[in-house]
Design a protein around this nucleic acid. Structure first.
Lengths: 219, 219
DNA sequence: ATTACTAAAAGACGAGTAA
DNA sequence: TTTACTCGTCTTTTAGTAA
């Protein structure tokens, strides 16, 4: 694995938000090394896909941290938080409502899923999922759901095709009982959270795209 | 600087809470290295005062992360959090009320400090400080106060002795207006926060030692 | 001024081994 | 079994240099 510390320094210099202009020599000071090593670090980080750069003809370079670079940093952050955070059996996640791919409605209408949710969560989900794009802090905390086994939802097959499994967690969406669902093979990036509830959450909470809500997920 | 990653692993194995029993060979697996390197890592961490160990005659060793080891981890944690946390001009700190060294009462009665607080905060502090022992999460966040310049409080001299300076921050203690004070040379470890207010906080909030309160510090 | 190569110095690694 | 030494090897670093 590449030098995560160098990546951290770049993030702290602002490369997490957008491209920053930086020369190898000035970066060398930040990581207290020679310019050669600084240059090599940047090469290595680029090679591993953690940053992307464009060397400027005038000198210096534009550096941005890529998605997988952010993931690596998020993971580190999460591990350090785990050291100091008290062990809780719940996570508070905040995010912005977005319109999903529309497939949630289809899946939630299938008997194979509906009966499982009924049995395991005690409610029949409203046909449709509410999708949230989590803020950065919540995206870090969301990793906790990956580590926990949660309530398993099994896949099944119809004559035409197979439907994948996953897991879910009881959750309170702005106080309303529901669940967060994590398909084994999600179509969404890790900063998107799918939630379901017995009722239409969009209507009940009068939500529009871009509206911010918080979800308390119980592990 | 020593291998912070090895220290992180030890923390995740529980060495932050108390001594853990661990052999070099089992630690080797956790850091994916040879037993020799694992042994060397532990030696290095001990040499730098980040962990303390006692090698057991039966084999294996007891390992605890020291105070300065915790500080190093807290610092890492804080830096990673800074990457993802939105830039806020306030920090929420939580902690437990403790009885301090009693010197707060003396210092807060001195004109040299009282007039400065009056001028800079707009209130004359009640003679006495309330001391909080912060929880781990808050201790990490408290570092933000170290980095900010805050409102400076200058030192002064009487004929007998000199009194040190420091800085303070406006704060709301359970909603009551006050301030957090950070002497340049504090007698307290970094998980203790001293707060002042125009009134006697202990009385107003009916606080006893061990009572938990939260302080919103404005930067 | 840059970036990034090559080559020599420094450092880290794991095998073998002692206690 | 352990911990931790030495030693040969491999890796990483910096100095020097080119583009």
């Amino acid at each position: 694995m590449a030098d995560i510390n160098a990546l951290k320094k770049l993030a702290l210099l602002g490369a997490i938000k957008g491209p920053i202009q930086l020369s190898s020599s000035s970066f060398a000071k930040h990581i207290s090394s020679s310019t050669q090593t600084a240059s090599r670090r940047l090469q290595a980080l680029e090679r591993e896909g953690l940053i992307s750069r464009s060397i400027l003809p005038a000198g210096g370079q534009h550096i941005t941290i890529t998605k997988s670079g952010k993931d690596a940093l998020r993971n580190e952050c999460y591990e350090y938080q785990k050291i100091f955070e008290p062990i809780k059996n719940e996570v508070m996640l905040r995010g912005e409502v977005i319109t999903g791919l529309g497939e949630g409605q289809y899946y939630m209408s299938l008997e194979g899923y509906r009966t499982q949710f009924k049995d395991k969560l005690g409610f029949i989900p409203y046909p449709g999922t509410l999708n949230l794009i989590l803020d950065d802090k919540s995206t870090v905390l969301r990793k906790k759901l990956d580590e926990d086994e949660g309530i398993p939802i099994h896949g099944f097959s119809s004559q035409q095709r197979t439907f994948g499994g996953g897991k879910c967690f009881r959750a309170a969406i702005e106080g309303i009982e529901g669940a967060a669902i994590l398909p084994d093979r999600s179509h969404y990036p890790n900063n998107v959270l799918e939630v379901i509830a017995p009722k239409n959450l969009r209507k009940m909470l009068r939500l529009k795209d871009g509206g911010e809500i918080s979800v308390r997920v119980v592990l």
